[in-house]
Every structure is written in C-alpha cells, then in structure tokens.
Design a protein around this nucleic acid. Structure first.
Lengths: 209, 209
DNA sequence: CAAACTAGGGATGGGAGCATCCCTAGTTTT
DNA sequence: AAAACTAGGGATGCTCCCATCCCTAGTTTG
C-alpha cells in the first residue's frame, strides 16, 4: 500500500493537498500532520513513499532561509526512502535550487497549484527526476461556484466560462469529453442542463455564457 | 440570491474557502478571485453580501503592514454593503484590531480554520458583531485519509481516532449521530464497516482503533 | 441551399452512497 | 447474574448523480 504524508500547518490547505495526493496516486493512505513534531514521530514509526512539505511552519521564522531549509532537511533525513515535494506560498527560483541540492524532488508554488496539477508534478518527477512549478497569477476572470449545480454541471460551466474568445462551443464539448472521459453529447447535455438551471433561478451568467 | 466573493491567490485555498462559504450559507453563488484586480472589477459590477479576503497577495510586500491594510481597505470601500472576513496565514492580535477599525467583521487565522469553522465565524458575526479566531497548533495526532473509504466511513474513523482517552465508543457513536444528524446505530455501522474494510486490506490502524 | 452550430427538452438504466433495522457472539462492567 | 460494551455480518429502500440516446427548432456559416 502506497503511503504518503503531508506536513502543512493550514488545515484547509493540508486537507486539499491530501486530496490531491489521493487523486494522483489512487489506492493509498495519506497522513496529514500540522506540526514538525507529529510528522517526525510518524516518519520514525513507519515507512513512507511520498512526503509533501510546506516549510513555512509556525514556530519557525518565515523569513529565515536557514529555518526553512532546516525543516525540509530534517524531514528528508528522517525518510530517506521517500520522494519529497516542497510546497510553498512564497516561492522563488533560488530557494528551489537550495531544496533541490538537499534532495527534494519537486518545488511547487501554491498560487499555481490547482486541482490536478499535483499529478503532473509526480509525472515530472518520474520522467525528469525533478519538477519545478513557480507561482504566477494567470487568471483573468473569477471562478464561479453555484450551489444549485452538481459537480459535473459545475465543471461544464467552468470550462465554458474559461473558453478563449473565438472558440466554438462544440470544441469545448469535445475537450470536456476528453478530460472527463465521457461522450461529447453528454458533455453538451451537462452544460445545457446547468445553464438552464441558472437561468431558471434568475442568475446573471458569467461572460461567455 | 446570496452572493459571496473570495479573494485569495492560492488556488487550493481559494477553492476550499469557496466550499466553506457555500457550506455555511446554503443557497448562494460564490466567486473566486486570484488577484485584487479581478476582485475589484467584480465588486464594481455586482452587489455582494460577503467578501472573504486574504491580504497576503502577490505583488504586495507580505511584511508591509501598510500593504496589507491597503488591500483590505480598497475592498471594503468597493463593497460597502458586504460583510468582510479577513483570513490570513500570519495572524496576530494587533493586526486583527487594525482590520476591525477599518470595518472588517472577522479576523481568522488559517491554521485553526478547519472545515465547519467558517460557519461558526458567521454565527459570531451575527451574534456579537465581530469574530476573532487566532491560529494555534492543537493537533497531537495526524489526520488519516484512506482512499478505500466512503466519506461517511472516513468521518467515523476520524472521530474515533480523535477520541479522548477513557471515552467509551458508544459516547462517540452518540456524538457522531448528533453531528451528522443520523441514528447512533447508523454511526456505529459506518465505523464498524470502515474498520472491517481497513483490516481486510491489511492496514496498520491509527492508535485508538 | 445545405450543413453546422445554437438552445432547449424528455426518458432511461446503472451505480454509489446513505440510513435504517435486525442478527449473532464474546467480553467487560456493575 | 444481568446489563452494557465490543466486534462482526446481512438485507433493504431510497436518493442523487452519472452517462447515454433521442427529440424539436431557430440561427449561422460555408
């Protein structure tokens, strides 16, 4: 059984990262630790295949490069057999190199870390040995979340709202079909159903319908 | 229709916060913005009832108190009719007071912000006018996440694993029944089913079964 | 004009998870 | 000894979501 550990103090982020790991790996156990102490205890008692680390922990100086390195270094030494992914909110190329030197397999900025990206990070590690994903703000429109929609319907609205200008709706339906592994007709159905729901409830729709 | 906006640059955290808002409010629309610009545009075009803000945005100096105040101030002035909740990773009581003075209704540290807490924050605002939740690390054991379990089963395992020493299992079943609004017998069922699944797969169970 | 894209709607079967109720049997506590 | 806690298991009905297929009809585009 594949075993992973996520060390991150912010609860919602820790749970989200645990979800990402689970979605990427498939059958597995994921442990979440809020503090370095909890993580250290677990690493002593069990073997882990993957460890995700946010070095910005409470009790350490966030501006001190030494503290950040020390946290990751302790984890890597405590789990020599694992793959180590560093995830941070304040990322920069210089620090990435520092972590790489002490044995980390990936350095990921939180801003660009969207659902599904973690899987690509693991692919990078398999293929190239190291994955570097620095943050950059790329959104130009907001995300929309409607409580009345099912997950599938929400996805359909999301993808359509992000459509580049000039792209046909049918092209989006094909893309959705591809990503979700369903028939294009079904994708079309979800989108239309979602749109109809929102209209019925009197919503102002996002630009691009 | 209740309308909310979440301004947060970290994608996973933004999505998690949007979920929390949705779970707390019920029927609503939630927009997520990665940058101050996107948020400003939306606030100009529409009315919002609730705005959640992380002042630690890229392009601003995270150590500059002025920058952090400025971000929140711009948002509050752009949405006078909304309730404003400030969420931050680096929280301190002094800053909380600063935000309160310029009109924020809540100041919440990310470390203590677990699923369900946001709902309590909104309750505080209704009852007392202001909500203050500073971060503090309280976990003593890690979270466990097993991919083979359904959400209900996972919840059952979670609550049992967090059981204080000396507390009877039946007490936990009653507590679960209360929180999930189900019969204690059902709670018991979920726990036993979950435990049996893990045993069958040869897992080492967390302490406390 | 023909073809393709647009916007709706109805019907159907399958599967997963939820919630409940009922059963046996060993161990511990009172 | 009786009562309660422990640990399993089986069966059932319900709801929601997923995925598919089929239908009409207006508008664009080649």
């Amino acid at each position: 059984m594949f075993r992973a550990l996520v060390l991150e103090d912010q609860t919602l982020m820790r749970l989200a990262l645990m979800n990402e790991v689970q979605a990427s790996v498939g059958k597995c156990v994921v442990l979440g630790a809020e503090t370095l102490n909890i993580a250290t205890v677990e690493l002593q008692n069990d073997h882990f295949d993957l460890v995700v680390i946010d070095p910005g922990l409470p009790g350490f100086d966030p501006t001190s490069q030494n503290d950040r390195i020390a946290v990751v270094d302790r984890i890597i030494e405590a789990s020599p057999g694992a793959i180590h992914v560093v995830v941070t909110g304040s990322d920069n190329p210089c620090e990435a190199d520092g972590f790489r030197r002490i044995g980390a397999a990936a350095y990921v900025g939180k801003t660009g870390l969207a659902p599904g990206v973690f899987s690509n990070v693991l692919d990078d590690i398999s293929n190239k040995g190291f994955s570097l994903r620095l943050s950059r703000a790329v959104m130009t429109k907001p995300d929309y979340r409607f409580s009345a929609l099912t997950p599938r319907e929400q996805e359909a609205i999301d993808m359509m709202a992000r459509r580049a200008p000039g792209v046909k709706r049918t092209a989006i339906f094909s893309l959705m079909a591809d990503r979700l592994a369903i028939a294009p007709g079904s994708a079309e159905k979800y989108y239309k159903q979602a749109r109809a729901k929102l209209m019925r409830q009197g919503h102002r729709l996002p630009r691009g319908l």
